[in-house]
Amino acid sequence: MSPGLIYANAVFFLRAGGISLLIFFFSALFSIVISLAFGSLASSQNRALRAPARVVIEFFRDVPQIVSVFFVFFGAPAFGLQLGPVEATIISLSLWGGANGAEIVRGGINSIPTRQFEACRALGLRGIDAFIFIILPQAIKPVIPAYGGLCTVLLQSTALGALIGATELLKSAQIVIERAAFAHGGMPGITVYGFILVVYFTISSGLMRGTRLIERAFRPGRQRRQP
């Protein structure tokens, strides 16, 4: 099958890629919010806050993503919610990403020396003020590599939306293959799926490179030699 098939469906693939990026953007955004909230609760000294947070985190971490996608999409009507494929995919990936991100945040907070918490108390900072101004800035640096990897997985997981009808990259590939096979015969799968593979590889590589640049930006600068 000629690569002309890709060119002929370029607009369709571009729209599907936009939907994939839309799913990824909001999934990553909501995951960050959930991660910070539950990661801080899971690190709390208050057992009444810590224990329920850990239960929620472990539940959504242990549920396979594909099960979560199906549960949200088909289970939402039972709660009076009518979700489209894109919305259901975003919610399910956000829950999974938030749970895994919360564990990353919790590890980052736990890596902070105890003396930093003692310094907060000495300065009169408690609760949310201590977390925002002292703890969180120090916890960001060690979690960047792990969170970059999590975001890459979220990007790749947008393909799960195809299972419930979201017209993202994988679904668009399936549609193009079916149309081409019906109209012209042959086996266009190798060309179309090869193109999708290259697209995911390119975007994921760019995302990981961006993560490394952010990580490098948080490294302490090298001290200049004294003359």
Rank of each mutant, 00 (worst) to 15 (best):
A76C: 04
R209W: 15
I190D: 11
L136K: 04
R209D: 13
R47P: 06
Q226W: 12
R219T: 12
P142A: 05
G210D: 06
V176G: 05
S157C: 06
I128H: 14
Q82V: 12
I140G: 08
S68V: 12
I144H: 05
R219Y: 09
L155D: 00
A53D: 03
A8W: 07
G127E: 02
I203C: 05
L163S: 15
N9F: 07
K141W: 03
L125G: 05
R15E: 13
I112D: 08
A102F: 02
S92H: 07
I175L: 14
R216D: 13
F38L: 15
K141G: 02
R47W: 09
S43T: 07
V153N: 12
S157D: 11
A181M: 03
R179L: 10
G148W: 02
F13S: 04
L81F: 15
W96E: 11
P227E: 12
F79C: 06
I23L: 13
A146I: 08
G97S: 12
L36Q: 09
I164K: 07
I132W: 15
G75K: 04
E178M: 11
A162F: 01
I132E: 10
V176M: 03
P137T: 03
I112R: 09
L49N: 02
N110R: 14
G124W: 04
L5W: 12
I23D: 01
A42T: 02
G108T: 06
T211R: 11
V153I: 14
L155G: 02
G127H: 08
L125N: 06
L154D: 05
M208V: 14
Y7S: 15
G194C: 03
G210C: 11
P227T: 13
I19H: 00
L49H: 08
S27P: 11
Y200T: 01
P188Q: 03
Y193C: 05
A162E: 08
P145V: 00
N110T: 12
F74A: 06
R121M: 14
R222T: 14
S35E: 11
I90C: 08
A181G: 01
A119S: 13
L49R: 09
R224A: 13
I135W: 09
V55P: 00
L169N: 00
L155T: 04
L170E: 01
G124E: 06
Q82I: 10
I57M: 07
I177F: 00
Y193V: 10
D129G: 14
M1H: 14
F117S: 10
A166F: 00
A16R: 04
A99H: 06
L150I: 01
L123M: 15
R121V: 15
I109F: 10
